[in-house]
């Protein structure tokens, strides 16, 4: 609704450009404090070159995403693990 989203829900489109499944429902583990939560719940700062997602528990940087005209840079420095739901292979 507003011009600036401030949680991971708003990154669904940008991340769907890179992944075949919806990553906002994936659960990530923070390197800094061990908090586990959905990407949708990350605190997202958009007034930066690209966007910065921070842990709602400790404020540490989880990941950064920068989009250029023909490529993207995804820096996952603060996420030790992403638990991603995938469709049944059968």
């Amino acid at each position: 609704m507003s011009d600036t989203w401030v949680d991971g829900n708003g990154l669904a489109g940008a991340l769907r450009e890179l992944f075949a499944v919806d990553i906002t429902t994936a659960r990530g583990t923070c390197v800094g404090c061990g908090t586990v939560g959905p990407v949708a719940g990350a605190r997202v700062y958009t007034r930066a070159p690209g966007v910065v997602a921070r842990c709602p528990g400790c404020g540490g940087v989880l990941f950064r995403l920068v989009r250029g005209p023909d490529r993207a840079w995804l820096d996952l420095r603060g996420v030790t693990c992403l638990e991603i739901q995938v469709p049944d292979s059968g």
């Binding site: 609704m1 507003s2 011009d3 600036t4 989203w5 401030v6 949680d7 829900n9 708003g10």
Partner: peptide, 10 residues
Amino acid sequence: LTERFGPTGG
């Protein structure tokens, strides 16, 4: 479940 859209809101 939560969704936040910024400090100015409505």
